[in-house]
Amino acid sequence: MTIVASLRGVSKKYGGTIALRPTDLDLRTGVTGLLGPNGAGKSTLLRLLATAQPPSSGTISVAGNDVTGSVADRTEARRRLGYLPQEVGLPRRSTAFDFLDYLAVLKEWSDTRARHQEVLRVLDLVELGSLGGKRISALSGGQRRRLSIAQALMGDPRLVVLDEPTTGLDPEQRASLRGLLSEQARTSGVLLATHQTEDVAALCDRVIVLDGGAVCFDGTVPELVATAAGQVWVGDEANERALSSWRTGSGAVRSIGGTPRPDAQLVEPAVEDAYLLMRATTRPHEGAVP
């Protein structure tokens, strides 16, 4: 797996608030999931990598180009980037096709036929192939989200940065997006910030957990899950001082952390359990900007 982007001592401050503490990271081909509570610095990290904002300190390189260096280097890096911000204000009066056509021009596809072919290719990828001529104001929420994702996949990006791409998608669309991203990840690095721990479990070969603007876990999904081993229980009653517990559909109570009751049985933890347990131990860090 080749390195597609690296951060060295990268930090970001907004005014006096620290959004990202000095961070070193290497991103490789494959899908990397970025977990963390709201305000942990996920979007900041993504914006810095996508060159939408400069860092306060440190250097970032994308596909071997120093984005914190010269304009030429930054431009070269942008040629190899696909970016989906958390919220895209789509031009409502434009058609889906025209919107992608415009972004393709901004991504330097100047040959008309090749550009149109690429626009149609990504429309097909997100299953909007028959809706190209429709105005964005007439598209549903899920269709708009898929349109936003399509623009991030245009060209052959080495690094694809997606901020909560599955928001507003139904289960079928989410499954189809997973297929799409895992295919893309064969040749490029895909970094996705998400609150959906199922997506991480199903898709990511690496997980980074951010909290309070700092990386508090960096490893594989099984490694993350292993941190919760021996701490998830199922019984008739909730564990004492459980971090979180709820009665499941089968009537048994699932508890994360705490002291188990005598009848409780240990069960296999999930990514979500590990994440919640990790949050409980790192909470003192809290206080970064949203």
Partner: peptide
Amino acid sequence: DPIRELADATPYSKLRV
């Protein structure tokens, strides 16, 4: 520009736009 954040991360010259 509603898609400013998207456009910012593209190589095309914003000045030309």
